[in-house]
Design a protein around this nucleic acid. Structure first.
Length: 544
RNA sequence: GGCCCGUUGGUCAAGAGGUUAAGACAUCACCCUUUCACGGUGGUAUCGUGGGUUCGAUUCCCGCACGGGUCACCA
């Protein structure tokens, strides 16, 4: 068979030589040990936690090693394309402080551009043509129906499905048959002529999993689709070679196609990059655990975290604790260090899939938020409210001074110990509500109504907004004593039967009456922030 | 089903041929406290299973079970 002639018929015209491309996309000029990593999403517009997980790993590895991270868009499948998806990806990752050095919509060093695979069609075709010329690829005219029938036949016979060996019908087409089909205008794809034997096992060193065993590929996979666009597998080999990727960190769902990729790199004469397959994030679903799913799990979407108002750094901290097992300990020892100072190691990446734990994230979130100043918190909440908050919540920020006082109180700024009441922006806004709106509902009072009213009346009678905290509390104690409650907690604990209750119960009445809640930060301060007039108004209202 | 990956408390996990098998989250109890939150002290709870190798295995080897992934002109 004249492969040269066939290649010319299949892909007519002059294509640049491999040497041309080698020169056009030269090895990167980077220090020894520097890793070039990438993120290569398809532009579906849906960016999820798994993407972020891999993104953080790739980013850390690149930048810790003095290398770089780039963004490539895998848009070989038009069906998946969604407008604005690329910007969405970039913005979502920027929110979590993942910065690309170059890539689609990023710019940077143009040497390795373009970063959209559709714009690289000519490069792929040049190499497909080369493969055909070498007899390593051939046209396949099988229709979708034929392939489906083949698969069914194989399944029925309990054989391995796919296009391989004796089932690779078009592999052995004669020259006449090929040209006849071509002359008839039949659509075709180009398949790799695999030389592999699944009986051969090869050991490969995976950067994450260590030594793994894979079987050689024997599938004649499609490398060029009938629309002239390569499949992912082929584009991956060509792009990661010419973009000079050194380490491919990707999800373990790719492990199964690793044999294909290895054969492709070999067939093309490209040195293989190193691979690291990281585990996927799992979720408990009833009895079993499964991969986080797009349809069932809202927490998979990065949008979820923005909507809930998770502090981006908290999400990143959580991802890092899952990504590198020694991160948590390091962070405990270096609470004030920048996240980027952590010595991230590929070898420390977990081999098994971690169950995503919202409790843990919430805990981290509380801690991160408690480190902010009230000013930083103000900015964070305001930004969140402007995008996701209700009209009323947006209004909370009108009186900046008041909001700052509220936040300082709720966060325990200035105290010996910070409070940790806030987990997310949405939760914080809910927490802070009673400072800005009269409570519509009140938690249940522990004391009976008559006692409650007596306490409220007594307090209203002697409340003075100008009282300092001490004076204020001594008045509460007085009222407690007058109504049969123990003024001192110790007294009550010593002889609980002598009293109707303790100051705690009296304070609770005042607390619920002014805030609607049984649990709040310091009541005196709350009343100070509300002001005497508003405080009295709320107390009086509860008298009815 | 074939192939591949994995398996230490409820969760994330450290760990080494001999340890009281770290730590964090969750949970429970107590302490602190005018409530809550914070903080403190303590508790419950883990090496999937069978066989080897070994004086000794949770750690090394083999089988099994279980869980996961993947088998497209999708990435």
């Amino acid at each position: 068979m004249n492969y040269k002639k066939l290649a010319e018929r299949l892909l007519p015209g002059e294509y640049p030589s491999p040497e041309f491309y080698e020169a056009k996309y030269p090895p990167r000029n980077l220090p020894k040990g520097a890793e070039v990593t990438r993120l290569a999403p398809s532009p579906t517009g849906f960016i999820h936690l798994g993407n972020l997980f891999a993104a953080i790993a790739n980013e850390r590895i690149a930048h810790r090693s003095g290398g770089l991270l780039y963004l490539r868009i895998e848009d070989t499948d038009l069906k998946r394309k969604v407008d604005g998806a690329v910007e969405a990806v970039i913005n979502a990752l920027k929110y979590f402080d993942i910065a690309f050095d170059e890539g689609a919509e990023i710019g940077g060093d143009e040497t390795y551009a373009p970063w959209y695979q559709r714009q690289r069609a000519e490069i792929y075709r040049a190499f497909v043509k080369k493969l055909i010329e070498e007899g390593r690829a051939y046209p396949c005219f099988c229709t979708e129906e034929e392939l489906t029938a083949l698969r069914e036949e194989q399944t029925a016979k309990k054989e391995i499905t796919g296009y391989y060996g004796k089932y690779a019908k078009c592999r052995n087409l004669s020259e006449e048959e090929i040209y006849a089909a071509l002359d008839a205008g039949k659509p075709f794809v180009i398949r790799l002529k695999s030389l592999g034997d699944p009986e051969n096992k090869l050991k490969v060193r995976d950067a994450v999993k260590g030594e793994i065993t894979v079987t050689e590929n024997d599938q004649d996979v499609v490398i060029l689709k009938s629309d002239g666009i390569p499949t992912y597998h082929f584009a991956h080999a060509v792009d990661d070679h010419f973009m000079r990727t050194t380490l491919v960190i990707r999800g373990e769902e790719w492990l199964a196609s690793l044999p294909i990729h290895l054969e492709l790199f070999d067939a093309l004469g490209f040195p293989r990059p190193r691979y690291g397959h990281n585990c996927s994030l799992m979720k408990q679903d009833g009895e079993t655990r499964r991969k986080l799913s797009k349809r069932k799990d809202p927490e998979l979407s990065l949008e979820f975290y923005r909507k809930e108002g998770y502090y981006p750094r908290a999400v990143k901290v959580y991802m890092l604790t899952l990504l590198n097992s020694n991160f948590e300990e390091w962070y405990l020892k270096n609470p004030d260090a920048g996240l980027n100072e952590f010595p991230f190691k590929v070898e420390k990446m977990s081999k098994s899939g971690a169950l995503f734990d919202l409790d843990k994230l919430n805990d981290i979130s509380k801690n991160e938020l408690s480190k902010l100043s009230e000013g930083e918190m103000f900015a964070f909440l305001k930004e969140w409210a402007e995008e996701f908050g209700s009209a009323a919540q947006k209004g909370y920020f009108a009186d900046e001074e008041k909001m700052l006082r509220v936040l300082a109180l709720c966060m325990g700024v200035g105290g010996k110990k910070r409070r940790k009441d806030f987990t997310t922006a949405s939760q914080a806004m809910e927490f802070v509500k009673y400072f800005f709106e009269r409570p519509a509902e009140h938690d249940a009072y522990r004391v009976e109504n008559g006692v409650k009213c007596a306490i409220l009346r007594a307090f209203i009678g002697r409340y003075a907004a100008a009282d300092d905290a001490q004076t204020w509390f001594s008045k509460v104690k007085e009222i407690a004593a007058e109504n049969g409650f123990a003024a001192e907690m110790k007294d009550y604990k010593a002889e609980p039967d002598r009293y109707r209750g303790s100051v705690a119960d009296v304070a609770e009445v005042l607390r619920i009456a002014t805030t609607g809640k049984a649990n709040t930060p310091d009541l005196w301060t709350i009343q100070q922030i509300l002001g005497g007039e508003e405080t009295l108004a709320r107390l009086t209202e509860e008298l009815k």
